[in-house]
Amino acid sequence: MTLNEAGQLREEAHRLRRALDEALAAGEFADHPVLVSFPSGTCGLISEFVCQYLRDRGLGSWEYVPGERHSPSTGEWQGTHGWARQGQVVIDLTADQFDGEGRPPMWAGESDDWYRSWEEGDSWVPEDVEADGMDRAAYEVMLRYARKA
């Protein structure tokens, strides 16, 4: 990845995060059963949105990476998370779900030790967001706000 591509990815990630924050504040997701609690519990859907958005902007193919984590000390299951990845580059617009762990609101950069601490499941390249339905409508809202951001 070139320095220019890295800068463009960070810019696009920040644009999307601002768009999602603004849409949430405007009540755009009040009726969506998942996005109403953005960023908590929204990593899967948002990561699929990111994969499509970046692909549609000519920034290559992105995969959705699901992960789960167990406590190193107790072995107890701690939770799941998901993010978009291309090679070693991670875009995660919901990293602040883990703000108690010092995560920034969003991550756009090379995978770090925090991402490597997750046990990855099988990743996949998401299809287009469904042509109709609640998720497609939410994706269109994100795009509308991203054009303003």
Rank of each mutant, 00 (worst) to 15 (best):
M1I: 01
T2N: 08
T2W: 02
L3P: 06
N4Q: 15
A6R: 02
A6L: 00
L9G: 08
E12Y: 06
A13L: 03
A13G: 07
R18Y: 04
D21S: 05
L24V: 07
L24S: 10
A26S: 13
E28S: 13
E28L: 00
F29I: 03
A30Y: 03
A30V: 11
D31K: 01
L35S: 09
L35V: 07
L35P: 08
L35Q: 08
V36A: 13
S37W: 02
S37C: 04
F38A: 10
C43S: 15
C43P: 07
I46M: 07
I46T: 13
F49V: 12
V50E: 05
V50Q: 01
V50H: 03
C51V: 11
L54T: 02
R55C: 05
R55P: 03
R57C: 10
W62G: 04
W62D: 07
W62E: 10
W62M: 03
G67L: 06
E68C: 04
R69Q: 15
T74A: 08
G75R: 05
W77I: 04
Q78Y: 02
T80G: 12
G82P: 12
W83E: 13
G87I: 07
G87V: 09
Q88W: 01
Q88R: 14
V89D: 02
V90W: 06
I91L: 13
I91G: 00
I91A: 00
A95C: 08
Q97K: 01
D99S: 12
D99T: 07
G102M: 00
R103C: 02
W107L: 10
W107Y: 11
G109A: 14
E110I: 06
W114Y: 15
R116D: 15
W118Y: 15
W118Q: 05
E119Q: 04
E119C: 01
D122T: 12
S123W: 06
V125R: 11
D128L: 00
A131P: 13
A131V: 11
A131T: 10
A131R: 14
M134N: 07
R136M: 08
A137F: 03
A138S: 14
V141F: 04
M142Y: 03
R144H: 09
Y145P: 08
Y145R: 11
A146Q: 01
R147C: 08
